[in-house]
Design a protein around this nucleic acid. Structure first.
Lengths: 122, 122
DNA sequence: TTCTCATTTCAATGGTTCTCGAAATAATTG
DNA sequence: CAATTATTTCGAGAACCATTGAAATGAGAA
């Protein structure tokens, strides 16, 4: 995955309602859900929802198909996998064993270097 | 990691310059880099950089300490790990084996359900 | 065809983001 | 203390975002 795609995917997920939408679609499985059902579940106005679907779609995180008068949206797991791959690579860069393993073995955070002059702001 | 923290972290990374900054700090290792060095490497105005550092810091993705007149910023790997954990859990929800394993074994994307009426928009 | 349902498009609005220049602060040097 | 260096704060502006109400489209039902 390229940086620009990663940024797009991150931006698409970096919004409360959209993250909810995406999570709901992930839960719903590969068959997806009709827009109306998502709207009902999350209590979002249909036009607002369209707006969010567009962004998720633009980032490649969901796909749509029509079924009768419903539009059915589904999560694209492949894109999320690529995003995770991108983040993992760019988080551990140069020093393997920092991210995925750490995530699995719940390693303690590396001891921070002591501040030399004043109290750290963090 | 809670949803609101995940959204904050995603938003912090969802910007070109900030993603660059974060990647640079990850590469730099736990000791971090002085702000000026980051500014020079990425050709960003120092005040602009401060703005971005603030967001990364607000999301818990970096820490700062002062060293003489320099402010030294460092990536907080623990937060990235938590973010990856959050995404992984929320991507695979209910159906394990979809994300991390898929990422490792490069599994083919699940066959999409055929559209019933019209050509899919994707 | 006309009606209804599901969803999208459009235009407007308030809010947030990113960037910039200028000025302020903090620490060190002379 | 005055000068210099490193960074932050402040204020402003252009661009973008999320939400809304009203109108339009697309598909099926009567």
């Amino acid at each position: 995955m390229e940086k620009s795609n990663a940024v797009a995917a991150l931006a698409a997920l970096a919004q409360d309602n959209r993250l909810d939408v995406y999570r709901l679609l992930v839960q719903a499985g590969p068959d997806g859900l009709p827009a109306g059902q998502v709207a009902a579940a999350l209590k979002l106005a249909p036009n607002t929802l369209t707006f969010h679907f567009d962004r998720l779609r633009g980032a490649g995180l969901v796909s749509v198909r029509r079924d009768g008068r419903s539009m059915i949206y589904a999560a694209r797991y492949d894109t999320m996998n690529e995003l995770l791959g991108y983040l993992t690579e760019n988080c551990c860069q140069g020093r393997a064993g920092r991210c995925v393993p750490a995530r699995m073995k719940r390693a303690p955070a590396p001891a921070p270097a002591p501040a030399r002059r004043k109290e750290p702001v963090t």
